[in-house]
Write a protein that binds this DNA or RNA. Structure first.
Lengths: 321, 321
DNA sequence: CTGAAAGCGCTTACAG
DNA sequence: CTGAAAGCGCTTACAG
């Protein structure tokens, strides 16, 4: 339980001053410290297992190398992946991430009371926008690009268009929309694109939840002018659509085609496997963190839009004659 | 972009000394500072929007109120939920969490090089144990309770026994085991319990992945002494078993019963819905963090084992005569 | 009841 | 090329 060594201990062992240790270990010794001295310092630091005290460095520099990551929920596989990508980039640059779940769409997200030492904010998928972060640099992801902050997004419109093109190509002329009852940019975009096709014959809203989606899908499917294809805002909603179809004795995809969005694990666990849009979630997190670090370096990163990929599986087929 | 106020600024505005501000705001003024003075300080702090600089406090106190959370992957819904529970408790106590993904089962987990300011460690589901954290207090979760560190666990054995009891009650005498090819405590326990039943007629290992599970399930089901029930280490593996059964023209549950473990979203997205064990993941995270905070307070928390709950759905039925 | 002062461990301008 | 020194913003023992 011996106390952790400080730069002063290293200096004593190396036979130099504490400031020299600091210089050498910060990599700022170039041309200012004799190579042998630098060697001795590094050797002593290694022997003692010295690691700089971050609290002291932060206090001195006024920066913390910590970023706040605001997400609606970590429980969704998508956000786990986004976090993973963001964390990788942060770590490579010596930054830490503090995660702050914020699932209230009606209110602007605010900094948690106990986080006052933050260099920047990454805010994901917030219905209510962001407030109360003062001058802290911010990058939004999966969020309305009209927001003044730099944004990193999935190309949601492009993904939805890929789906409608795919369905139109199969011959579908009557689409139903199972929309997520979540008031955020990404779902607004899905709805708009579908409306623009002119092929929409019905839309039901539901929570992102299998049981809720099943009920909504029943309302959509159990009527005379039944859509020949059901476009779902999310893979989980598609799972509910499958259940409704089965309940009504309809075969997927023979009697009704179903599409999802996200390509989470559920998509390939379903039977038949789900035609959906694969979103590069980990890449989104990485790009967003990179953009934030650019901002911290004083640059103005451009808005980014990452394309998804249409994954055609067994849940879509030509409509029945 | 005015500079952030310090306790010195608050002192100036309140007309007191900096030390008095510190005392009042730390809640240690009781009987040492006149009530009016305390009022004035709090008022000034509020007006200026003062919040203490954590780096300075940490440096002074030698503590960081930060906990390192080592997890195999955040992408799994289970760990997202565990994190959510842990974060809630941490926040209530003014602690932050730094997440450190560690997915190498063969090597003991070590502290990431860039994290040196940690008060404690929460280590989850590690095959290789933990090393290199020195004297930092540690609590392990979903891990071998034989580890010397205090542990917080799911009652995996109890959950598996609930499944075998359920299947035995339905009349199953030949069980197959689709085992996760992951070398951690939780999966060892599942295998042991199943072996002890004496009803096991076959076991196949596979990655926790639908496609891999499908292949393993085919090996298990496509033979003369076919098991009447397939016990899966994980809901996702069960999804693969469904696919294999369908491929072989077997109906679930008429021709073969299938069980999962975890009750993640997939379980109720499947058709028929999956009989499985629901694990209190969020509660596990909360209990683990509470135990770690107890350790930090100098106490020795007891080992904890949280029971799961058998959720009987449509994937299990009596075996065919 | 209140304040002056020391000191946590760094970084960096400055002096030599 | 190297060191003495200031100072980041706190907490807390000590003096009054």
């Amino acid at each position: 339980m011996s106390k952790r060594p400080t730069s002063r201990d290293v200096a004593r062992v190396a036979g130099v001053s504490q400031s020299t240790v600091s210089l050498v270990l910060a990599g700022k010794a170039e041309g200012r410290v004799k190579p042998e001295t630098g060697q001795a310092v590094r050797e002593a630091a290694r022997r003692l297992g010295y690691r700089p005290n971050l609290a002291a460095r932060n206090l001195r520099l006024g920066r913390t190398r910590t970023v706040l990551f605001v997400v609606p929920t970590l429980v969704s596989p998508i956000f786990g992946a986004v976090y993973t990508g963001a964390a990788r980039v942060a770590r490579d640059r010596g930054f830490g991430i503090v995660v702050h779940p914020w699932d209230d769409d009606a209110t602007p997200a605010r900094s948690p009371v106990d986080i006052e030492a933050i260099d920047g904010v990454l805010a994901s998928s917030l219905g209510g926008g962001v407030a109360g972060f003062g001058d802290v640099p911010i990058v939004v992801l999966d969020n309305d690009p009209a927001d003044p902050a730099p944004s990193v997004n999935f190309d949601v419109a492009g993904g939805m268009r890929a789906i409608t093109r795919h369905l139109a190509g199969l011959g579908h002329r009557r689409l139903g929309h199972l929309a997520a009852a979540v008031d955020t940019w990404t779902f607004h975009v899905r709805a708009e694109v579908l409306t623009e096709t002119g092929a929409l014959t019905g839309r039901e809203h539901c929570a992102i939840d299998v049981a809720a989606a099943r009920e909504a899908a029943l309302a959509l499917l159990d009527r005379p002018d039944r859509p020949t294809a059901v476009v779902c805002d999310d893979d989980l909603i598609a799972a509910g659509a499958y259940k409704a179809a089965r309940h009504l004795g309809l075969d997927v995809p023979r009697d009704v085609s179903v599409t999802g969005f996200d390509d989470i694990l559920v998509a390939s666990a379903l039977e038949p496997e789900l035609t959906t849009i694969r979103l590069p979630a980990e890449r989104l997190g990485a790009r967003a963190m990179a953009a934030l670090l650019e901002r911290l370096d004083g640059h103005a990163p451009p808005d980014v839009s990452l394309p998804g990929e249409l994954i055609v599986r067994g849940s879509t087929a030509p409509p029945r004659r």
